[in-house]
Each structure stands twice: as C-alpha cells, then as structure tokens.
Write a protein that binds this DNA or RNA. Structure first.
Length: 903
RNA sequence: GGGAGUAUAGCUCAGCUGGUUCAGAGCGCCUGCCUUACAAGCAGGAGGUCACUGGUUCGAUCCCUGUUACUCCCACCA
C-alpha cells in the first residue's frame, strides 16, 4: 500500500464529512439509549465564523463525539439567532446602499427585505462549522424566528402576561439613539471616557449671588427643573426656599434639598434633569418636578432645545459651552474621566430616556434560578462563575423586553379604544384578541397592534425547550426524551443574557433545569492580550487556518491551550503542533502498514512490549476518564497526545519494529493494529478526520494482512469484524464514529514501574553516548551491581538491548575496570569502554554527584534528628525519611568507592 | 466604590486543598543526528528563592495576614 509521507488533510476531511452526512451519522431520534443533548449557542444568523465560535464549537463537538462513542444517543442541535438589533442594523445599511430609507418603507415591505437578506446570507456560519467537523444533527437546524420558535415565544409572552409577570410601563430606559430602540441594562457597556467637568453658574432669582453646579452634560440644562443640595450642607443653607435661574435658558427652578447629593463631589450642588438621568428622574418623582424631554429619538435636540433645536447632542454641547462662556456663566472647566454607557450593538452613547416599555418581573424567576445553581443541580465549570451569577441574581431588576424594531417577534398586544380609554389586550393573535375584546368589553372596534418587537434574548432563553417544541407541545416525545440537556458550552460574557435566563425559563416551563453542566470557555485573545474582534482586525480567518493546518490541527491547537474559564492567548503557531501530530499519526500508520507478517513465534521481547503498552493504555484511559469527569479537556488531550506520541510511537513501535527487511510475527502485528485502533478511538473526539481515515486503513490492514494467512486470534471487541472484504466494509455504515470508546481496566502498576526503570537505563546509555560522542551504532555492554529490589529489569532486558543498542546487560559483583558509570536510583550501572576513559572528567562528574547526595543526606538527617518531627509526624512519613536516608547513604558509599577506584 | 480571580521554567499552563507524583508538562531553547515511518522527525540536555512580606506548623508552592502587579464582573456619583 502506497501512502504519502506527508499527511494532507484537505481531501480527507472533505471526504469523511460527506460520508458522515450521507450515512446520517449525526442524526438522532429518541430511542432506548441514554440521551446526551447539547444545544448550540445560536450564532447570529448573519454572522461569520470567528475564533470564539471555533473554540466553543470544538469543545461541543469533542463532548458530543465522546458521548456518542460511549453509547449514548448524542444529539447536538444547531441553529441561528435572529439577533434583532445587529441584523436590523445590517439590513438598514444594505437598504441605504441601495438608496432606500427604512422610514420610507412599511413594516411589511421592510420585513420582506429583511427575510430576503436572511435567506441570502443567513446560515453561512453553519456551513463553516461543517469544515470544522462539527457533528451537529443538521436535520434539526432551527432559527429563533422559524414558525415553531416564533409561536413558542408568543405563547410564552401571553402566558407570562396572564400570570401577571409582564407589564407595560413608562420608565427610564437605556435608549440607543442610533438603533432607535430601548436596550436592556445588560446591553449597555460602560467605557471609560475622557471628558470635561463644567462648572456652571446658577444665579439666584433676583439676586447677584449664584451657586456653582458641576456637570458633564451641559447640553441638558434645557431640561433642568431644579438644583439639589444636601440638607446638612452649611455652605448652601442660605439657599433654602430660594429659586435659581438656569444659565442661558432663563428658566427659574427651585432649590431642593436631598440627602442623595454627595457633598464631596464637584461643588456639592447637583442640577436635576428628570427626563435624562435615572437619579434625577427618581428625585423628580420624589419632589414632583416637571420633566422636560429635550431630545428627539435620534439624539438631536427637540423644540425644547430652543435655539439649539435640531442640533446633535454632542454638537450642542460644544456650542452651549461656547455660548455660556461668552455670557460669563462658566466658572471653570476641568478634565474629567468617567464611565459612559455605550450600546453593545451599535456602540452609540446611550441616552437615558423616559418611554413606555414592556417589562418582565424578575424576582420570582431569579429566586428559583439561583437555587438550582447554589445546590449544584447545575454545575458551573469553573465553579468561580457561581459568584458572578449569584451577585447578579441577588441584585436583579426587571427586564426590559421591548425593542423599537421591526425585525423580531412582534409583541402580541393590541390596543382598543373603549369609551375614550385605551385598553390593552394580550392574545396569541388578532382573532383571539377580538374574542377577548368582545368578552370583556362587549365591543370591538379597530385593534391596533403594538409596534414593538421583543428582545432577542426573549427568544433565546427558550432555546433548549423550543428546539424540541416543548412550549407548544409540552408532552411530546422529543422534549420528554432530550430535555434536560446535558452540557451547555458558552462564553462567560453571556452568563446573564442567556445562561441565567434559560435557567429561569426551564424552571418556569419544564419545572426542571435546562442543562446539568455549564462549561464556560475563555475569551480568545491575540498575542498582545487583546480580545479578538473584527474591528481590531486581529482575528485570523478560521477557514484559512483550517485550510492551512487542517481542521484536526486547528482543533487540537485550540484545545491544548484552553482550560475551562481561562482566556486563550491564540497564536497561529499552536495549530502547527496539531498539524504535526496528525502527521505523526499518519506516519505511524505508514510504518505499520509496511510490515510483512512472518511465520515465526512471538518473541519474549514483543510479548512484553505488547503487555506493557496495554498496561500503559489502561492507565492513561483512567486518567482521561477522570479529566473528562472534571471537564479538563486540555489535560485529557495532552495525556492522550503523550500516550500516542511518546508511549506508542517513540517506545512501543520502536520496541516491536522489525529489522529492515524482516517480517513481524502475526501475534504482535495483530496486537499492534488493535492498540493503534483503540488509540484512534481515544483521539477521535479531538481529531475526527485523521482518526477516521487511519481507522479505516487499519481495518483494511486487518482484512488484507491478517486474513491473508490462516486464522489468527480473534480480534478484540472494539474492532469491526475482519471477515469481510474492504469494499464490503466501506460500503457498510462503518465509521469510527459509532465504535465504542475503550474504557479503563485494571492494570499492573508494578510492570509500569519496572519499565520506567528500564527506560532510565536506556536513557542512561543514550546520554552516555551523547556526552562521550559515541555513535548510536556502536554496540555497548551494560552491567550493574545488583542489590536494590526496586531495580528489577529482567523482563525488559531484551528491550534494553534493542533500544539501547546494547549487546548484553547483566549483574556483576564489582565495578569492571575502565568503565563509565551512571546511577539509577541506588543502583550503579557500568558501561565498559574499549579505549581509556577520561579520568578527570569522570572524577569531576562523580564528585558533583557526591556533593549533591551528601547535601541531600544532611537535610534528611536534620529532619530526623528533630525530636518534634519524629514525635509529630505520622509513622509513614518518618519511615519514608528513613528510606531516603538509607538510599542516600548507599549512594554516597557507591560514589565514594567509584571515586577511590579512579584515583 | 463594591466583589471575584490570578501570580510556578523564555511562553502557555498542571500541581487533586500542608510530607516520594514536589518542584512538573507541552511548546520554545541548546547539543548531536537526514538511524529507509515521520526534519511537520530522532536522541540527549539546560532552565524555576513556586510574586513579595510576616505568621500558623515538626514541616508551606499548598493554610492564614498584609504588600505589589495584572485580569474580570458589578455599580446612577453628577
């Protein structure tokens, strides 16, 4: 069989992904197996794959593929999110490029464009996920605004309204003047910004005296309706009951006194603009102040802005400062740094604004959601996010769920004028609303539906339920089988937006948690530690990376440096390690596939090699299982990586590798194929493509080589039947994907320890060659002084001979003359030299060793002579120290003897 | 302003809550090798007062006090 010496992922990855799709190996239907469900965090429908998605979806795929191989019914449901604000922004931009203004369109016309856009660009990201190898059940691909999901959202809204949890009210909300919509508190990002603090003079009505007020937003003075000072502030007690003139505006406003004011800040006087600041609003309510809204929705000043009407808020700020300065109404201007709220989606500066919005009461929902995390019904990995979660839920405020957009789930509320009053009717659709109107008011005129849509997260919080139609049909077989899901893999920045709210929805609509484990990934950063983002342009294109290193290589690179919750400083070079590893496996396959089977019996060396490799594999399986239990994927991968590269390739294959041109015995060959096969199974969740390819070749080798001769020992149960032809085999559904993951079994620790000793001997010989400039080809002899029971290498003697290129290894009574020595533990090993050894160099080395050993002995003796230690420490610990002492003394004696012999 | 977390080799991180997994891994680095599976490789090697400071203890990378540095989250100080 001819195999290229370099692994080329491209064609292979394409081939197998198609194969998996054709055979529907990702598809899941409820059956009698244990379900393992994962729902994808739905990416924006118009988004493209970035490094964060790569990391997140790689982790999901690893868990899903592993679960599938563990015999569970794995179901990974993909889908996309309609992402109301950001999609709307993109559509509006697209329309603008075509010369169309959104405002000139009707709602229906606009939505037609939006859907066209969605159909055209939507789901690109899902196509990209296939390149990564994601084993999603594509037949289940969903969209937060498809029919089922849309109806689910509407039903939930109606239900929560009827339960009294949803209400409409006029509140101060975070207004995005660019997107022209309200956004929730969580969608406001506070950024440090360098601005100015302006000290303005407010003259007392009819007097020459004035009070100075500091503000960062002088343009809002048009909305001032009071000035507030602290009631106990003696500096301002004279102002009690007075009124002051708003500078430049001329309006006379009262002085009010409230303890809210911080006397230390600025001048201790605060201007009150109830329409444009949440605190001012609260004070306005308290003191019954007038509220003057001076802004239009787009952030320009309205008719209350007087001569500034029509100006943008920031331009107005500059102008008004100039004007006030000229009028002598500015005391001073200082540099000032504060936090300014920006819209998460549009980055526009948020304007606090009074408006009528819909809210969801959070208190009851939050209580239940907190409980299930506190009592570990849902586990967070890493657990530190419990703190963040708790803090948020304990301080939660009602959720503003309405958005002034068209792209989204339109709020199912209708307004009806009855006897001069506007009544609100919430219903599933207009027909139902009419019916209610007739029942309630015995009248139904024109119903006007609310123009707003719901916050995107109001649909995603239902995702684990609505994906299985559990809102509309709560008793259907799918929701009963797949819910609760197993693991949620997501980024910590949406713990409030999404994770917490899904937990709430789960409790409300299934009386059960939506998932059992939440794995928080880190944030992918560049080498400089900056978050990777499109705007910075510091993110590599994932698809290009895959083309360069192969999907397996990229997956492995990302996983190796991504422990749960830790940020991932991404550097393209880590993908190289993954690519190299694929290549390593590939070449191991080349080696094994080239071996010819002979008729000889299995040698003792080969039998031991196989035995050892089996023990080692069992040991690693145990470690890996523990790592997965703790969601330590990086560790699990690294451990398996070392098993494959070091133990299997560097040690095992070298042990059993036949001399050039000679065959290998059948038994060892079969064992090698079996071990190799299981190795591929272990690696498959991490590197699906290369393992599938190698696995198939290994199956072919079994058929071709082992069946060619007479029957061999029956193959192990993780392998496919070897009695069919390769073509038949491939024609069937066989894939590594539906093989069973090997599980850990009992292993012989003693054998592993003995091998470690043997390995040290081999390394000792190799080191000796290296440092003395001896060729690896030169055959050496090794002897040792027996005595220490721990030095037990008989089983591996043949392997030492082979891998150390040693003619003989045997015990001797005393040191041979003219030999170089090295120590393994307390055992002296010797390699006789043909030419004279460099006595000086040897002495120097021995003396250094001696000095170290004596120092070590001293520290042990010091401990043992400490009465408190001997009395206080457990017997086992003391015994260990005594052993250390004995070993050190033995070693020192040996070293001294050697030094003496050399002198 | 409040809260949380981190600090171990040049880099990225382990170290299961005090004693033979105790100073580790991978990558990088250095030396020697094209040994017919692999130079995307093989063999060997060097690198660390476990941030600093006190304390608890017979014994501290591990527990406690403080200090410093960085990171994240929350919050309406104009």
């Amino acid at each position: 069989m001819e195999i290229a010496s370099k692994y080329d992922p491209r064609a292979i990855e394409e081939k197998w992904y198609q194969f998996w799709l054709e055979k529907k190996l990702f598809h899941s239907e409820p059956d009698n197996r244990v379900p393992y469900t994962v729902v994808i965090p739905p990416p924006n429908v118009t988004g493209v794959l970035h490094m964060g998605h790569m990391l997140n979806n790689t982790i999901q795929d690893v868990l899903v593929r592993r679960a599938r191989m563990q015999g569970k019914n794995a179901c990974w449901v993909p889908g996309t999110d309609h992402a109301s604000i950001s999609t709307e922004a993109k559509v509006v931009k697209m329309l603008a490029e075509r010369g169309i203004n959104k405002r000139d369109l009707t709602r229906d016309e606009y939505l037609k464009y939006a859907w066209e856009w969605k159909e055209k660009y939507g789901g690109i990201i899902l196509k990209q996920l296939r390149k990564l190898g994601a084993s999603c059940d594509w037949d289940r691909t969903s969209f937060t605004m498809d029919d089922i999901r849309y109806e689910s959202v509407i039903r939930v809204f109606v239900d929560l309204y009827n339960k009294g949890l949803i209400y409409r009210g006029v509140r101060m909300v975070n207004w995005d003047p660019q997107a022209l919509t309200a956004v929730s508190d969580e969608e406001v990002i506070y950024k440090e910004s360098h601005g100015k603090l302006f000290y303005l003079r407010y003259y007392v009505e009819g007097e020459d005296r004035y009070i100075v007020v500091a503000t960062t937003r002088p343009e809002t003075i048009m909305g001032d309706t009071a000035v507030c000072v602290h009631p106990e502030d003696e500096r301002y007690s004279w102002l009690k009951g007075k009124r002051v003139v708003v500078p430049g505006v001329g309006r006379v406003v009262p002085i009010i006194m409230d303890e809210y004011v911080d006397r230390e800040f600025g001048t201790g006087a605060l201007k009150i603009t109830p329409a444009h600041d949440i605190n001012d609003y609260n004070l306005g309510m308290k003191y019954n102040l007038e509220s003057i809204d001076i802004f239009n929705d787009n952030g320009t000043l309205n008719e209350h802005g007087g001569k500034y009407a029509g100006m943008d808020r920031f331009a107005c700020r500059k102008q008004i400062v100039k004007d006030l300065e000229e009028a002598g109404l500015i005391e001073k201007i200082e540099d000032y740094t504060n936090k300014v709220g920006h819209s998460e989606r549009t980055d526009a500066v948020i304007e606090p604004k009074l408006s009528a919005q819909w809210f969801l009461k959070m208190e009851g929902l939050a209580k239940k959601a907190l409980e299930v995390v506190e009592d570990d019904t849902i586990r967070f990995h890493p657990a530190k996010f419990k703190n963040t979660y708790r803090h948020w839920l304990e301080n939660i405020k009602d959720w503003c769920i309405s958005r002034q957009l068209w792209w989204g789930h339109r709020i199912p509320a209708w307004y009806l004028e009855v006897n001069g009053r506007v009544e609100t009717i919430v219903a599933l659709d207009e027909e139902a609303a009419k019916k209610i109107a007739m029942e309630k008011y015995n009248y139904c005129g024109t119903l006007r539906q609310d123009e707003d849509v719901l916050d995107t997260w109001f649909s995603s919080w239902l995702w684990p339920i609505s994906l299985f139609d559990g809102i509309r049909n709560p008793d259907n077989d799918e929701i009963k089988y797949y819910y609760p899901t197993a693991d949620l893999i997501t980024a910590p920045d949406i713990i409030f937006f999404w994770v917490a709210r899904m937990i709430m929805a789960g409790e409300e609509y299934r009386h059960d948690v939506p998932f059992h484990n939440v794995y928080f990934t880190g944030i992918v950063r560049d080498k400089l530690g900056r978050k990777m983002s499109k705007s910075l342009g510091n993110s590599p294109d994932p698809i290009e990376l895959i083309e360069k290193y192969g999907a397996d290589g990229v997956r492995m690179g990302m996983l190796l440096t991504a422990p749960a919750g830790n940020d991932l400083p991404f550097d393209e070079s880590i993908c190289e390690q993954g690519r190299n590893f694929s290549n390593k496996l590939w070449n191991a396959l080349r080696l094994v596939s080239g071996w010819q089977i002979g008729d000889e019996q299995q040698s003792q060396e080969n039998a031991v090699a196989v035995q050892w490799m089996e023990q080692r594999m069992a040991q690693v399986l145990e470690d890996v299982e523990r790592d997965f239990d703790q969601y330590r994927l990086s560790e699990a991968l690294m451990t398996t990586y070392k098993l494959a590269w070091d133990d299997f390739c560097s040690w095992y294959l070298e042990m059993v590798k036949p001399a050039h041109g000679t065959p290998i015995d059948r038994e060892t060959y079969e064992a090698t194929l079996s071990i190799f096969t299981r190795l591929m199974l272990m690696l498959h969740p991490f590197m699906p493509f290369v393992t599938e390819e190698i696995w198939h070749t290994l199956q072919s080798l079994k058929v071709e080589k082992l069946n060619a001769g007479q029957s061999a020992k029956s193959s192990d149960k993780t392998d496919s039947p070897s009695s069919i032809s390769v073509t038949d085999f491939l024609a069937q559904n066989y894939s590594i994907m539906n093989q069973h993951m090997p599980t850990s079994v009992f292993y012989d620790q003693r054998m592993l320890d003995e091998f470690d000793t043997a390995r040290e001997v081999i390394a000792g010989v190799r080191n000796l060659r290296n440092s003395r400039g001896l060729s690896p080809k030169e055959v050496l002899e090794v002897s040792y002084i027996a005595g220490d029971r721990r030095f037990s290498i008989d089983r591996f003697a043949g392997i030492i001979r082979k891998l150390g290129n040693v003619s003989e290894i045997h015990a001797v009574a005393e040191k041979p003359s003219n030999a170089i020595s090295f120590m393994i533990g307390t055992t002296e090993c010797f390699v006789p030299m043909s030419q004279n050894v460099n006595r000086e160099a040897e002495l120097e080395k021995l003396q250094a060793d001696l000095k170290y050993a004596e120092g070590f002995l001293q520290s042990v003796l010091k401990k043992l002579s400490n009465e408190k230690f001997v009395n206080g420490a457990p017997a086992a610990v003391i015994e260990k120290e005594r052993n250390k002492q004995r070993d050190a003394e033995t070693k020192i004696a040996a070293l001294k003897a050697q030094i003496e012999a050399l002198q």
